[in-house]
Design a binder for these strands. Sequence first.
DNA 1: CCGTATCCGCGTGGATACTG
DNA 2: CAGTATCCACGCGGATACGG
Lengths: 132, 132
Amino acid sequence: MEAAQSDPRPAAQSDDACRTRVVLNIVGNKWSMLVVRHLRNGPRRFTELKRATDGISQRMLTVTLRSLERDGILTRTVHEVMPPHVSYELTEMGMTLRQATAPLLDWSIAHLSRIDDARATYDARADPSAAS
Amino acid sequence: MEAAQSDPRPAAQSDDACRTRVVLNIVGNKWSMLVVRHLRNGPRRFTELKRATDGISQRMLTVTLRSLERDGILTRTVHEVMPPHVSYELTEMGMTLRQATAPLLDWSIAHLSRIDDARATYDARADPSAAS
DNA sequence: CCGTATCCGCGTGGATACTG
DNA sequence: CAGTATCCACGCGGATACGG
C-alpha cells in the first residue's frame, strides 16, 4: 500500500474506528470465536476442531486457524510422530482474548430471548402485512 | 461439558454457534460498535451521529440504526418541533451491551502493538520473498 | 433534516476436487 | 491426516440520486 499524501483525517474517533476494526477483523468473522472457544481446555488437533465445529469446511477451518496464528492468538505445532498430526493451542494472548470475549457471550446468552422479543415486536409493527 | 459421552447429536456447540452468531450479527458489522459507543453519553441526533462517525454514508448509518433499533439496542424518537429532527438513544439493554463490549475494546487497545508484531513476524517467516 | 432506492464492487465463506 | 486450489454464490457496504 502506498502512503497517503496529505492525510486530512480527524484523528480522535479514527482511533476508535481503528480499534474496533482490529478486534472485528479477528473475532468478527464467522468461525473465530468458536475455534478460540474450542481451544479453551488445551491443545486440539485439526480433525478434532473440524468435528467440534459443526458445519465448518476444511478450507474455512484452515483459513481461520491461519489468521488466528498470524495474529498470535494460537500456535500451530506439527508432530512428526506416527501417525503425523498437527495441534493448535492458544497463546497467552489468545487466552486473554477469550476472557475478553466472555462478557459478550454472557450478554448474548442473557439477552437472547429479549432480542427475539424486540425483533418480533419491531417486525409486527413495521411490516404487519408480511405475515401474508 | 458432555464431551466424553457418546453424543450422536452434538447439540452443545450448536448452541454456542447460535450465541456467537447472535452477538456477531449485532456488533460484528462495520459500524454498530462505533454507533453504540457514540451514544454512551445520552441521545444523539442523526446528523450528529453522521458527523461523529467518520466515513459512514447516510445509507449505512440508517441501516445500522434500523438494525440496532430492531434488536432493541436503541430507540428512535421523532421530534415534531421546528425544525423537526430525530434522536437516538440507547435502551437499558443497549447500555448493558456497551458494557459487555468494553473488555474487548480494552483488549484490542492493550494488544494492538503485540498483534502488529505477531503479524510482522508471521509474514516475514512465511513470505520472505515478498519483501524483495 | 432524514431518510429511501438503485446499482455495483468486493470480500467472505461454501462446495468440491486434488496433494503430500 | 492436514491441508491447497479453484470456482462461485451471496450479502455487506460504498456511491449516487432522489423523496417527504
